[in-house]
């Protein structure tokens, strides 16, 4: 009865050996929430900021970066986006405005990094609401880094804020307003500031008890160039609070387009849309 199936052991053994040699230990996943990752796939924010430090922008030089968001499950698009961005001259880095993952799973964040690590320039991220599902915030912190952080590049201070209020049940904790105010009050040696978060303050997923405080803090920050968001998957520049503060929203990866921002002087900027 068994002779017929003699070829099976060899086949399955072969495939088992192939699978094991691929990445045996990595494949031993304890749970989809398991965020263990190799050393070169964790603390990616710190690693990308270190790369930025190694390519300093002299004072007075024009800032130019790619702005995108919501990579989620758009891996085909991520691959094409990287090929397109790598053709752009004079780009200093790329920003993903949150929702790196769709289900808040570590493996998804690493799948996106698998593409974005092939960029010629460093990239930075801010945490999105989809990155906060399940144990996503823990995975994000392990693989990328802090939920709130800031850095100075050339003349610009970037303030990256967690604004995923719905994930905190609108409990008044997110965004962390005392941290935001403290960051806005300090230029850290830069001449201008840019704030980047995932959920825009005019959105239903932003903690309604903090909308006025957040928009008000930005309104009274004299050196703020603009606030940048993802979440809506579509590009737009608007002043939702009619207070002179510009809010720039990114394309989602699936829109097969991104924006190149050029910033100079005190608050001057130019936007260029690129399709890929």
């Amino acid at each position: 009865m068994l002779n017929r199936f003699r070829s099976f052991p060899r086949l399955t053994l072969l495939s088992a050996v192939a699978a094991l040699s691929l990445s045996g230990c990595e494949m031993l996943e304890f749970s989809p929430n398991d965020f263990r990752s190799p050393d070169d796939e964790k603390d990616l924010t710190a690693k990308n900021l270190e790369r930025l430090r190694q390519q300093p922008l002299p004072a007075g030089d024009t800032l130019r970066f790619v702005f995108t968001g919501d990579s989620q499950r758009f891996y085909d698009e991520a691959k094409d986006l990287v090929a397109s961005v790598n053709q752009q001259p004079g780009i200093q880095f790329l920003v993903v405005a949150g929702d790196i993952s769709d289900f808040g799973m570590g493996r998804e964040m690493r799948w996106v990094n698998e593409h974005l690590r092939k960029l010629k320039v460093p990239y930075v991220t801010v945490v999105g609401n989809h990155d906060s599902v399940g144990n996503g915030r823990e995975a994000y912190q392990h693989i990328f880094g802090p939920l709130n952080y800031s850095f100075v590049y050339g003349d610009t201070k970037f303030i990256m804020v967690d604004t995923n209020g719905r994930e905190a049940n609108f409990d008044g904790s997110t965004p962390n307003m005392s941290w935001v105010r403290q960051q806005l009050s300090d230029l850290s040696g830069a001449r201008r500031q840019i704030v980047i978060s995932h959920v825009p303050p005019q959105d239903a997923d932003f903690d309604p008890t903090l909308t006025d405080a957040y928009a008000g803090a930005l309104r009274t920050t004299p050196k703020l160039v603009f606030e940048m968001n993802g979440h809506r998957h579509d590009f737009g520049v608007s002043q939702p609070f009619n207070d002179g503060v510009n809010y720039v929203n990114s394309y989602g990866f699936e829109k097969r387009a991104y924006v190149i921002l050029t910033v100079w002087g005190d608050k001057q900027f130019r936007l260029k849309q690129v399709k890929f």
Partner: peptide
């Protein structure tokens, strides 16, 4: 949904 951007090996898990 991503036949170019994800490989089959990337979605596999192993149990022993």
């Amino acid at each position: 949904q991503n036949r170019k951007g994800l490989s089959f090996g990337q979605i596999l898990t192993l149990a022993i």
